[in-house]
């Protein structure tokens, strides 16, 4: 996989536009998923994940091929997500989906502004609930928890992606887990 990616990157560096399309195809779902989990909104996730690929393309010459491409790509995406979360805190999406259609968007939007009453939470389906709980986590725990438990990445890789010392990542995983436990209580 890495070898193929580096081959395509070398083609992109030589000016081959199409080679980049292959890279996007290879990583689109993983990158979109991280953005979606971070942001909890499909439109925003698509926008940010696409922007991350554009930035990767523009800065491809700065990528060190001795390192993992996915780490580099995830770093761009998580930074964009964190920026977006910080900027939009009080913002509200008018095109959030209506409950019952896909549900997820609305719940995660509410999650950004405040918690739902317990009976609402209990009515949620598993997938909605997962996104709701993640959305309630403070930003700095949210990113490590997503990378650790949804992307199932090793702590060292998370530390590379977020450019944080390994010790800090461990602490954030611990606190994130603790925050989740408190949020969810007895399920």
């Amino acid at each position: 996989m890495d070898e193929l990616v580096n081959k395509r990157i070398n083609e992109v560096l030589k000016g081959n536009h199409e080679a980049f399309e292959e890279i996007v195809t290879m990583f689109q779902h993983r990158l979109y998923q991280v953005c979606y989990r971070m942001l909890g909104n499909r439109q925003e996730a698509e926008d940010i994940a696409q922007e991350a690929f554009v930035r990767a393309y523009v800065n491809i010459h700065t990528y060190d091929q001795k390192r993992k491409f996915s780490t580099w790509l995830f770093r761009i995406a998580t930074n964009l997500c964190i920026d977006r979360i910080r900027k939009k805190k009080p913002d509200y999406y008018l095109d959030a989906e209506v409950p019952g259609t896909e549900g997820l968007n609305m719940y995660s939007q509410i999650a950004a502004t405040g918690d739902l009453p317990e009976e609402e939470v209990e009515k949620m389906e598993t997938q909605e609930r997962i996104q709701y709980e993640i959305g309630r986590l403070p930003d700095k725990y949210r990113s490590v928890i997503i990378l650790r438990y949804m992307e199932e990445l090793p702590l060292q890789e998370i530390s590379d992606i977020l450019e944080l010392p390994l010790g800090t990542v461990k602490t954030r995983v611990h606190r994130g887990r603790e925050a989740l436990r408190k949020q969810m209580g007895n399920m």
Binding site: H29, Q33, M150
Partner: peptide
Amino acid sequence: FLQFAEPVKAP
């Protein structure tokens, strides 16, 4: 519980 999350696909 988090690991029950279904993979999300890009549109």
